[in-house]
Design a protein around this nucleic acid. Structure first.
Lengths: 201, 201
DNA sequence: AAATGAAAAAATCATTAGATTTTTCATTTT
DNA sequence: AAAATGAAAAATCTAATGATTTTTTCATTT
């Protein structure tokens, strides 16, 4: 099935591509939050059938509805349009540096940007920047995920399970389901490419 | 069960830690290659019980046997000792930049180094450096894996499925089971942090 | 064209039995 | 003393089944 067509003076491909990507995002976000169509639709005051159609791009939600869904899924509505200025065929495949959404905790001293262009993958990639002097505080409770990363620049101390490690640029780590904490004792930001599987967003 | 003890003038922890890590590596490599104990043990001319014990660090293979196994598993024997100079508690958790083994294809113009400190994870991280002017040739046959990556520096053109994309530093990509090809048209090496799930080594 | 509600279809989940793979361990070998 | 074997025991994996839940479809209404 191909719902795309050529519309517009420059021959740019359109169609319901945007609605389609928005729908996929909603579905992936809903799944990672372990909600059913009935739960999310109920919370949004809409029917199950409607949400099913929205998620598959068969119908277009109103902006009001989308706002509501974004709220329930705990993302900003702009999240759904992060790649909308790019060529349709690269959406969901590539995420440009300029389009990366900020995600996750508002923990001071940590900025996390999503690198994964698709939310439907089996892992997510994140670019984390740890500010000089910042730290995570107490070890985080272990999540049922597997984490890994590479330190690109700066320096970072991590506590993973019982172990304290001092990371230098190029050092990498990987662990499953262990509580961890971090602190940046250096004078420059520490940049880590982080991988989480399965994704949590 | 704890087989570790304090031996040595500096109180450094030892025990059968090395044998244990070697065994885990053998097991993981065997699994990614979809071999049973019987198949690998048979090919190595040893019994199933023996290999089971080696993989769990209950017995120590001879260097001759380990060489044989490395050969059958298509890694260099030094691979098993990549982190052996590090503190035991960080082995399998952290891989230092200086210890990264070179892996995979000897495709000209591509150097791949393993970033994952453990082989038993659900994904593997790789640092790939694409030489200026180099290319992959024809699209690779799709593997039953999911791939993702971030371009750290340089420039890279990729063909993923039907789509051609020009990547700049900071751009990221992710795709599942699609054939892909690449070419570095720039004048400097292109460095990519690459993720593959499940791991293939 | 969006939205609903209910029927139909599809996907998911829990069991279970059978087959395969791995671990254990008493014994033999080096 | 530790490595190695071989066979019994345990654990894991597979495939099939039926029940349950979830999702899709579609005729009808807004």
């Amino acid at each position: 099935m191909n719902f795309s067509g050529n519309i517009g003076s420059l021959g740019k491909k359109w169609g319901n591509a945007v609605a389609h990507h928005v729908g996929e995002d909603i579905r992936s976000l809903r799944k990672t939050r372990a909600m059913t169509l009935a739960q999310l639709a109920g919370a949004a005051g809409r029917s199950v059938g409607w949400l099913s159609q929205v998620e598959r791009g068969r119908t277009t939600p109103s902006v009001r509805d989308l706002e509501q869904l974004a709220d329930l899924l705990d993302v900003n509505i702009s999240f759904f349009f992060r790649s909308s200025r790019r060529a349709p065929e690269e959406q969901g495949l590539v995420l440009r540096a300029a389009d990366r959404p900020t995600i996750g905790s508002d923990e001071t001293g940590l900025v996390e940007e999503l690198l994964s262009p698709t939310l439907s993958g089996s892992f997510e990639m994140i670019r984390s920047v740890f500010a000089p002097g910042a730290s995570s505080g107490d070890p985080r409770k272990a999540r049922p995920t597997e984490d890994g990363g590479v330190l690109i620049s700066g320096a970072l101390t991590m506590w993973i399970g019982e172990t304290e490690v001092h990371l230098s640029p190029g050092d990498s780590f990987q662990f499953a389901g262990a509580p961890y904490a971090w602190r940046n004792d250096g004078s420059e930001p520490a940049v880590v490419i982080w991988v989480v599987s399965p994704p949590i967003y």
